[in-house]
Write a protein that binds this DNA or RNA. Sequence first.
DNA 1: AACTGTGAATGCCTTCACAGCT
DNA 2: AGCTGTGAAGGCATTCACAGTT
Lengths: 220, 220
Amino acid sequence: MAGNPLNAKVVGRLSLYRRLVSGLIRRGTMAVYSHELASHAGVTAAQVRRDLMSIGFTATPSRGYDLTELARTLDRFLDSAAAEATVLIGVGNLGRAILAYFQGQGKLPIIAAFDTDPSKVGRMVHGCPCRPLAELSSVLAERRPRVAILTLPASEAQAIADQLIAGGVRGLVNFAPIPLRVPPGVHLESLDITMFLEKTAYFARLAVAREESHEHEGSR
Amino acid sequence: MAGNPLNAKVVGRLSLYRRLVSGLIRRGTMAVYSHELASHAGVTAAQVRRDLMSIGFTATPSRGYDLTELARTLDRFLDSAAAEATVLIGVGNLGRAILAYFQGQGKLPIIAAFDTDPSKVGRMVHGCPCRPLAELSSVLAERRPRVAILTLPASEAQAIADQLIAGGVRGLVNFAPIPLRVPPGVHLESLDITMFLEKTAYFARLAVAREESHEHEGSR
DNA sequence: AACTGTGAATGCCTTCACAGCT
DNA sequence: AGCTGTGAAGGCATTCACAGTT
């Protein structure tokens, strides 16, 4: 059932393929060749073939990959049998946006959100109950969530992460702009939005500079 | 001024180092050794040395990297002389969260947000004017923003991206869950939150399975 | 004695390229 | 004729390890 442990980049692309495949199915497509799926995903055909090879999914040279079968296989790899309980810590603007985005998504239900702010606690936020942070450990003990989303201030992120991991959480998606330290066996995905923006600004500036120097040609 | 073109991963870490450095300066630290900065950043000391080497910043073996000097050098690399005008497309929950996060951050001012929803248009959202999408091209022409943040539905993302690029934008941060196609010379940073969550859930599940099988030892 | 800067080694990921299949 | 599955090659990023410096 587990198969051989897949590499993180492959899993990311599988998640993307799944979404593309379900879109194609909805449009009535029955099968695709690697280069077709590749062009939708923005990767090479060889990459698609390798990725699908790594989960043991095969095509026929004549028809390509059967989409119904592929969708089922991807579901089996990416989803648990039961839905994976998830918690979210930090009901600020970003936390609320993510709650709104994932409410009613089926798999990965966010079972509770936590915050220290008394004005938020007790309410429903986009369909999710907001509870005081003090109740975190009892929720961890009772509901055994395995995934947590951190949308809280950087100053509190490490302490909360430690508490979550101690309580059994094994996957963290961190939006706080600080590098977290997690023990081996715990998966951490860090999404530092400021960093992505600064990176983008750097390359945008470079591109503009390059274009401008090409315009009046004379340099170099 | 441009130097040799840096690799994207290096630029990402430089952005992180900058934040760490400014925190250290605030606490009164004057200099750090590569292994100290590395431990804050969660990378190896060799990595820090290589990254700083790539921007030509050097230390003295006795004191390490001078933080004041380093902060200045990083600023010079990561910031433009003038602030880089940025626009945001799609004032949904996520768009609003990002507007809130970046308002008043100095560099990278979001000069306008765009949406088609008439109930949003005309208002200020977290200090940023929300304008109708129809005005996008005139704003592109007048203000020449170079960076854009896409927080809109997947179905519209590619068309808007094309319009932005035609209007001079050279860096995109895309939150829409779809792979965008951009021409060479345009930098694209894609942040597919669903993908990150699914990846994390996969590895969390794997970790739990591994722990459970270790508990009653006999399997293999 | 301990650090930096860096050539060389390693390791990982992606792509090539082709035999095999239909 | 055109596709897949995959060994081998290639390219890129990280780490090693050490000469040089203070």
